[in-house]
Amino acid sequence: MVISLTEAAVNKLKKIDTNENQFPRIDADIAGGCGISVKFTLIFDEMRRNDTVIEYEGIQIRIDHFTKRYLDEVTQVDYTEEQGFHVGESFSSSACAT
């Protein structure tokens, strides 16, 4: 698994002032009933016991096992002032058993 950060994302993450117990984390927001919808976000949270830690230009990004299984092999994190952090590609599946 590879996490890459655009220059804009790296610059913003280096400027963000967090307390010593909060770290950037990629989080999956899962919704659905018959199908599934997955949207990825970057949050700031405490470390979890079984996190995977990926370091990019001195920035440590944490990913829990639940989220990790939904990420692409290569996931890019970008940042814009208008939309904030954008993580990878969200996806949905409407495959329902009939």
Results as ranks from 00 to 15, higher is better:
Gln76Lys: 14
Asn11Arg: 15
Ser94Arg: 12
Lys15Gln: 14
Thr80Phe: 13
Asn19Cys: 11
Ile26Met: 02
Gly32Met: 08
Gly88Asn: 07
Thr41Lys: 10
Leu13Arg: 01
Gly88Tyr: 03
Val74Met: 11
Asn11Ala: 15
Lys68Phe: 05
Tyr56Trp: 07
Asp29Ala: 14
Phe40Gly: 02
Ser94Cys: 09
Asp72Glu: 13
Glu89Gly: 10
Thr6Gln: 03
Gln22Leu: 07
Lys39Arg: 12
Pro24Asp: 01
Thr41His: 09
Ile54Gly: 00
Ile63Phe: 09
Leu42His: 03
Lys14His: 06
Phe44Cys: 11
Ala97Gly: 07
Asp45Leu: 04
Pro24His: 00
Phe85Thr: 10
Tyr79Lys: 13
Thr75Met: 12
Ala28His: 03
Glu82Asn: 11
Phe66Leu: 15
Ala97His: 10
Ala9Arg: 09
Arg69Cys: 01
Thr6Trp: 02
Gln83Cys: 04
Arg69Lys: 08
Phe44Trp: 15
Asp29His: 15
Gln60Glu: 13
Gly35Ser: 06
Asp45Trp: 02
Asp51Ala: 07
Arg25Phe: 03
Asn50Asp: 13
Met47Lys: 14
Ile54Cys: 00
Ser4Leu: 10
Asp64Lys: 02
Phe40Asn: 03
Asp64Val: 03
Phe91Cys: 10
Glu73Thr: 11
Met47Pro: 04
Lys12Ser: 06
Gln22Gly: 00
Asp45Lys: 06
Glu20Trp: 01
Cys96Glu: 08
Gly88Pro: 07
Leu5Thr: 05
Glu57Ser: 13
Gly88Thr: 05
Ala8Pro: 05
Lys39Ile: 07
Leu42Thr: 05
Gln60Phe: 06
Arg62Trp: 07
Ala95Val: 10
Asn21Gly: 05
Asn19Asp: 12
Ile61Cys: 01
Asp72Val: 13
Asn11Asp: 13
Asp51Arg: 14
Tyr56Lys: 06
Phe44Thr: 12
Gly58Thr: 07
Asp29Leu: 15
Val77Gln: 07
Glu55Lys: 08
Phe23Tyr: 06
Leu71His: 08
Lys14Trp: 08
Leu5Gln: 04
Glu81Arg: 13
Gly33Val: 11
Pro24Tyr: 03
Leu42Pro: 04
Ile63Ser: 08
Lys15Asn: 12
Gln22Arg: 05
Arg48Pro: 00
Ala8Arg: 14
His65Ile: 04
Met47Asn: 07
Gln83Ile: 05
Glu57Thr: 11
